[in-house]
Nucleic acid binder design. Structure first.
Lengths: 231, 231
DNA sequence: GCAATGCTTCGTCTACCATCGAAGCATGAA
DNA sequence: TTCATGCTTCGATGGTAGACGAAGCATTGC
């Protein structure tokens, strides 16, 4: 009778508030311990443990044992799935936040699993497109020779980013902008570069990425776009 | 504390088996009445009614009153969301079907909301790409002049497909193939064309699209691909 | 060895929500 | 008007799953 993939199972896994909180926190890209996730979700350790088992059984999380800690991280595909669902939820007006000062910062720049999302992330990919650094090949994204030079000039080792398990460039849908930003190992490396060079830093306890004044102007200069609407 | 879109709400809505059944049936693209959906989901009418209210409140469904019937249909974005979740679920091995004869047919060709999905759907988009009928512009898909001619030659009124509310061409991720097929008004028109010209027909009570022997060879001739792996 | 930490398992409780039958409202037909 | 159909609302019920405390395993550190 019932054919095809079991969407109800995925829905149930994401549908519990405690689990949804955990997944949202893990969108920050860090691997977190069971205790940390319990606190983030606002439940006791035993409860969190049960939730984490279910999420892992469902294939949403990867788990790594390290000493007496257990670290949980999102499976890469899970991050993309969650962004999609967030985009849908946002388009339906299903927000659970009380609008606060943190929200604009999140819309401007935030971490999405391990790469840059938000206004800045979308701008970056747009700019790379406009200047022929990245081309769309069907639905895949390819770094052009020109783009490779550009990235190398920033001091990033492009050749070292190749991975058998993960594409170099990948589009990831952005819930706040409803357009794509750059994921993949290159997206990860670029964000890491911004953080390492001090152009930006993470806001503790949030997914927000805060650019310094200098970092912002440098970023905007690096990634210009045609319709210049500076944020 | 909790910021951003409420993914738990979407998850809960999709997570109930009865609701998931309804949504799956509605992926067939038809608008169905409450009674039909009750039967499809295997629940009583009152129960179905309650579920449908929730889905509508959540913005997953659109509802149209017609006489004493109430017709429900997927909101267009919902179809895309569900395909994404199906893709994820399938990649995790979360299938709820007992493998049967219907399954291969579904993988080969099925309806996805209103356009062709499955092996045939993916092949069609691949072929259109290869022959320069469609180009990827960033992440959007554009029909080229060459493509327009090709479609017109099939007897489809391309200019009549323009819509302010929906793109002409759109990529839609395919859960069985894990690659994209063609959605949008053009995708819809092409499927309609196959059905009208008798190349294919819908299997009643399923999302499967059955091509006749003649229809199949005509389809393969229309949409050739490089690595010729005929199904 | 013994204690401390981090997590899981167990047992129990509770609350929510899916479920159904019966009754109530509409709409359309006769 | 009256009846039939399609659906919603109401009220009662039951199952399920999420919640926690206590106890049980591991791993580490002393």
């Amino acid at each position: 009778m019932k054919e095809g993939p079991d969407i109800a199972r995925i829905g149930t896994l994401i549908g519990d508030p405690a689990r949804a909180n955990m997944l949202t926190v893990l969108m920050g890209g860090e691997a977190l311990t069971a205790s940390e996730l319990a606190q983030a979700a606002g439940v006791s350790l035993p409860t969190a443990s049960a939730h984490l088992s279910k999420l892992e059984d469902g294939g949403l999380l990867n788990q790594r044992k390290q000493g007496r800690h257990r670290y949980f991280a999102l499976a890469p595909e899970t991050a993309a799935l969650l962004e999609t669902i967030m985009g849908f939820a946002a388009s339906r007006g299903h927000l659970r936040h009380r609008p606060g000062p943190k929200d604009p910062a999140l819309r401007q720049a935030r971490i999405c699993y391990d790469h840059l999302a938000g206004d800045f992330g979308v701008r970056m990919l747009d700019s790379l497109f406009e200047h022929g650094a990245i081309e769309a090949d069907g639905e895949a994204l390819d770094l052009t020779a020109r783009g490779k030079t550009f990235i190398c000039d920033m001091g990033i080792d492009v050749d070292g980013l190749a991975s058998p398990r993960r594409p170099l460039c990948k589009a990831c849908l952005d819930w706040s902008e409803r357009r794509s930003h750059l994921a993949g190992t290159l997206g990860k490396a670029l964000l890491a570069h911004f953080l390492e060079t001090g152009l930006a830093r993470r806001q503790p306890g949030s997914r927000a990425i805060l650019f310094t004044a200098k970092g912002k102007s440098r970023f905007l200069a690096l990634f210009p776009v045609k319709d210049a609407e500076a944020a």
